[in-house]
């Protein structure tokens, strides 16, 4: 017999799984926090001096290591990369926001997988699989695709796969926080990506910040005008979402209206005048970059060694 308390706990767990990442994303991080970890800000510690190309190589190698080794390597690398945030401008705050963001991703994917993992998947992941049931869901949860029970193995599996993207995400954000878009694009320029495409990416990177700012403004104005005020404050995230949806079209139109001037301004400053474009600031490879490259090599060697030692990837993707 499923008691009232069990029902309450089941619903609490379900709401926690959905609500906790949402709370973290919207209340603790917010648009401003998100903006802070996605936009370059000038500072002068060693990460700002590392060539963006080397950082891209670093991110790619992190991705390779994480996807080919056991989960806890990914976890260690996530913590290691995140800890570098402390060296950035407003390092403590960026570390805090970055950690919240990674945590919300972890909790989100943990609860996005755990209740739904089938026994067949778990038996591939865990040889000699015997389920350790830690909770039984109400039968009607099956409508949402929940398995009948939540097992310890499902939690473990979900926790482990959650680390697949976090280290990559943390190192990618490091790139955008420590390099101006034009520095990144100069690097991409070496791969012969056409200038108009690079220009478009540069516009996009600058616009991300405006999108967050204006969307935030549109949402707040709607709240001021009374959206959601007749309802419980616990429904605020729903109305936040409604406001974001309603604000999308005016925000797009507002930014695109300015886009015409951006185009004219670029055209009247000779954009696409010649096939080849020069760059005033070169992004040279310096001694620091060789150190980072050495770390990259160490990571690759470590990857091979870890696999030889039997700590390679043990969890299938599908």
């Amino acid at each position: 017999m499923y008691s009232l308390l069990d029902t309450f706990i089941s619903w609490f767990v379900l709401i926690f799984g959905v609500g906790a990442p949402l709370y973290v994303i919207f209340k603790a991080i917010g648009f401003n926090g998100f903006r802070e970890i996605t936009v370059y800000s000038k500072y002068n510690t060693f990460l700002y001096r590392v060539n963006p190309a080397i950082k891209i190589v670093f991110a790619v190698v992190i991705m390779m290591v994480v996807t080919t080794t056991i989960w806890w390597i990914g976890a260690i690398l996530t913590v290691a990369v995140l800890s570098l945030y402390i060296t950035l401008e407003h390092g403590k705050r960026k570390l805090y926001i970055g950690s919240l963001f990674i945590m919300s991703t972890l909790v989100g994917s943990l609860w996005g997988y755990a209740p739904f993992v089938t026994y067949s998947t778990l038996s591939v992941v865990f040889p000699h699989f015997t389920p350790d049931v830690i909770w039984t869901w109400p039968s009607y949860f099956a409508i949402m695709g929940y398995q009948h029970v939540l097992t310890l193995q499902a939690l473990k599996y979900s926790f482990q796969i959650s680390f697949r993207s976090t280290a990559i995400m943390a190192s990618a954000l490091l790139l955008v926080m420590t390099n101006t878009p034009s520095q990144i694009l100069r690097t991409l320029h070496r791969f012969h990506i056409p200038d108009p495409i690079l220009f478009s990416i540069m516009v996009a990177m600058r616009t991300v910040s405006f999108v967050l700012e204006y969307l935030n403004e549109s949402i707040k104005i709607q709240m001021m005008r009374g959206l959601g005020s007749k309802h419980s404050k616990y429904l605020k995230p729903i109305f936040f979402f409604i406001a974001a949806m309603q604000g999308l079209v005016p925000t797009i139109i507002h930014i695109m209206r300015g886009g015409k001037d951006t185009g004219i301004s670029a055209d009247t400053r000779g954009f696409r005048a010649t096939k080849k474009r020069s760059y005033v600031e070169s992004v040279p490879i310096n001694r620091l970059d060789y150190y980072v490259l050495a770390i990259v090599v160490v990571l690759i060697v470590m990857d091979v060694a870890i696999n030889i030692m039997g700590f390679g990837r043990t969890i299938p993707y599908n």
């Binding site: 400053r269 954009f271 474009r277 760059y279 600031e281």
Partner: peptide
């Protein structure tokens, strides 16, 4: 602008 005209750095 001068970058667009491929002027030396």
């Amino acid at each position: 602008a001068p970058e667009n005209f491929n002027i030396p750095a």
